[in-house]
Design a protein around this nucleic acid. Structure first.
Length: 592
RNA sequence: GGCCCAGUAGUUCAACUGGAUAGAAUAUCAGAUUUCGGCUCUGACGGUUGGGGGUUCGAAUCCCUUCUGGGUCACCA
């Protein structure tokens, strides 16, 4: 039982004893720095149960608690806040548990229901860009956080591998590609295919101009450009299973997948399963029939099928075209159901998709509920804002996108520039140095993106790039590396049993209090799908450590028991930084 | 136009989901330290939480209204 639970019980007991009234819940919060105390009971909310002066109530509860609970040594009351001071012994006992558990704060999975997290989900006609980077980092981090909070997690993605956009790349390659391959050009497969997507667009634009010169309107020109017609024809052939088209499609997609894998590896993300739209785009149709029978859907005169959501404050939404073909919504319905068949222990899903699809997912979840799936209540759209550049929106056709691979390389070289002067990597091989620079560069990028609330849009300045000071990934990594240096020089064995009796210095106590928050942070981050909470926690911990570092001498302390405690405490901080960063997918270097 | 999201120090972000005097970083200025590792630490300056109303012991947070920016309202995905 945690101290909070125990305090809560005592307070409820106090209510019965003192006032003969039962109390529902007790509200705790960490005591603000400006007041003395370690934990605070909010008495305001209790006034609903019992009519009395909040300060007097605080006094009486404080007196009761310090008498009945060993850990409470003092208390003070400010308005409706009862601040409790806890004993050193309590903190030292806590410290022992931290030292004994290298994954303190992580909850091992209970084997009830799993969560499926979908993220990335790219189109296969162009390389990944900065927007995908945010998606990948968020999806991966949320998965890790959910795992740490005790959930079983399946990471997946749905690859948009069919459609007119792929045909455009295929057509341009067929016409202008001269049998180029990733091997012959040395290009990553996704880059090669992306280049032909751009090529298509160039030719398309020229053709539109020509048609306009012949007197056609812009609308007509756009619809009648020969290269577009040819691409549309190619899509029809693909759908008909034309052998030549399908084989070209397989070939080019294979190049793209190989390219994506390289990027995913560089980003440090991974997946447990893959879904392909070419295999799922027909899936939902059978459920439309079922929905019609249940009265969830209605058929119009032209044969198209709709879901009327006006009573829920939304519009009517089409789920099947008049010609009987599926739309986006249809396949998402089918895919969701399919996933639960494939993974029977899944009880909920998280879709990591940009906020421009907020409406789509609102509708999707509602339809699945109406179809009667009980898991539909456990669906979450992890919606995130766009990544903007100072120059404005990213447009792939205008060449203003920030390519994911380029970005990673750029971040590493910035890290190199900064770290080289510092020269603590002596004795490292060139390879090890390069790895360290990549770790720092990626750390900067990931932290920069993840520390912001997903809902908010990010302004990313590639020129000014990412700061290495203040609330940044490298600053936290740097603190970790500094602690490692201390541990290397330490004369004491950190594996020794932690002390139990020790008079805590203020700064030591603050650090312990900060460590204590970690399990709660994980749970909260999991229920809010918010890596930002973890990021900001790590930074607070580092600040607390620096303050400790400045105020006490670790290796030069007076007594060996002091050295031993402080070294062990430093190690616990380092471990927690490492664990917190692992939830963000960020590595920590031993030196930097 | 309907619906959704965001708006907080000059700038980038917080604020435990309704709690104490709205906090950090950065930038600027002033100091401490010169070392266990250099980018450490302590101050100062900086705010009508876009504006206006309301709800209550208490509001950046909830409600109404209004302004600004973005998204979305496809038989595209």
């Amino acid at each position: 039982m945690t101290l909070q639970e125990s305090l809560s019980q005592h307070i409820k007991q106090a209510f019965v004893t003192l006032y003969n009234t039962p109390l529902e819940t007790v509200e705790f919060q960490a005591t603000r720095k400006d007041f003395e105390g370690d934990i605070t009971v909010v008495t305001f909310s209790m006034l609903r149960t019992i009519k009395m002066n909040p300060a007097q109530l605080g006094e009486e509860l404080g007196a009761y608690l310090s008498e009945h609970v060993d850990e409470v040594v003092r208390y003070n009351v400010v308005k409706g806040f009862l601040n409790l001071v806890l004993s050193d012994a309590y903190f030292m006992t806590f410290f022992q548990t931290v030292c004994a558990n290298p994954t303190f704060g992580f909850v091992s999975p209970s084997d009830d229901q799993a969560v499926m997290v979908e993220y990335s989900s790219p189109n296969t006609n162009k390389p990944l860009h900065l927007g995908h980077v945010r998606n990948n980092l968020l999806g991966y981090s949320v998965s890790e956080i959910l795992k740490a909070s005790g959930k079983k997690v399946y990471k997946t993605q749905i690859i948009n591998d069919r459609g007119i956009h792929i045909c455009k790349s295929m057509l341009a390659w067929q016409r202008y590609g001269n049998n180029e391959t990733p091997e012959s050009t040395g290009l990553k497969g996704d880059k090669l295919v992306g280049n032909y997507y751009v090529k298509f667009d160039q030719v398309y634009k020229e053709e539109i101009k020509e048609l306009e010169a012949k007197g056609l309107s812009t609308e007509e020109a756009k619809a009648q450009a020969p290269i577009l017609l040819e691409a549309q024809d190619m899509l029809l052939k693909w759908e008909a299973g034309d052998a030549a088209v399908v084989s070209l499609w397989e070939q080019m997609n294979a190049w793209v997948y190989a390219g994506f894998e390289v990027t995913y590896k560089a980003l440090g993300v991974n997946f447990d399963s893959y879904y392909y739209e070419s295999q799922t785009y027909l899936l939902g149709k059978s459920f439309i029939q079922e929905g019609l029978q249940k009265g969830v859907f209605i058929k119009k005169e032209d044969g198209s099928v709709w879901c009327d959501l006006t009573s829920d404050g939304l519009d009517e939404k089409i789920v099947l075209r008049a010609d009987g073909t599926a739309v986006y919504m249809t396949q998402d319905i089918g895919t969701a159901i399919q996933r639960l068949k494939d993974f029977p222990d899944v009880g909920g899903m998280v879709y990591t998709v940009g906020n421009e699809q907020d409406y789509h997912f609102k509708v999707l979840f509602l339809i699945l509920k109406k179809l009667g799936f009980d898991w539909a209540k456990n669906l979450t759209h992890l919606s995130y804002g766009m990544v903007d550049l100072p120059s404005g929106k990213m447009k792939s056709r205008e060449g203003t996108v920030v390519d994911a691979d380029d970005l990673i390389v750029e971040m590493a070289s910035t890290a190199k520039e900064i770290s080289q002067e510092l020269g603590k990597l002596e004795g490292y091989s060139e390879l090890e140095k390069a790895e360290t620079y990549t770790t720092i560069g990626l750390g900067a990028l990931k932290y920069f993106i993840l520390k912001v609330d997903p809902k908010k849009r990010i302004l990313f300045d590639p020129q000014a790039s990412v700061d290495f000071q203040g609330n940044t990934g490298p600053f936290i990594q740097y603190t970790y590396a500094r602690i490692q240096a201390i541990l290397r020089k330490s004369p004491v064995e950190t594996k020794d049993e932690p002390l139990l009796e020790y008079a805590l210095h203020d700064k030591e106590k603050s650090l312990l209090k900060q460590l204590q928050l970690f399990p709660e942070v994980i749970q909260q981050a999991a229920s809010n799908y918010s890596p930002a909470l973890v990021a900001n926690y790590a930074y607070d911990l580092v600040k607390e450590f620096n303050s400790f570092y400045q105020n006490v001498s670790i290796l030069g302390a007076d007594s060996t028991s002091e050295i031993r405690f402080r070294v062990q405490l430093s190690q616990a901080v380092a471990t927690t930084i490492k664990n917190a960063f692992s939830l963000l997918g960020i590595q920590v270097p031993e030196r930097m």
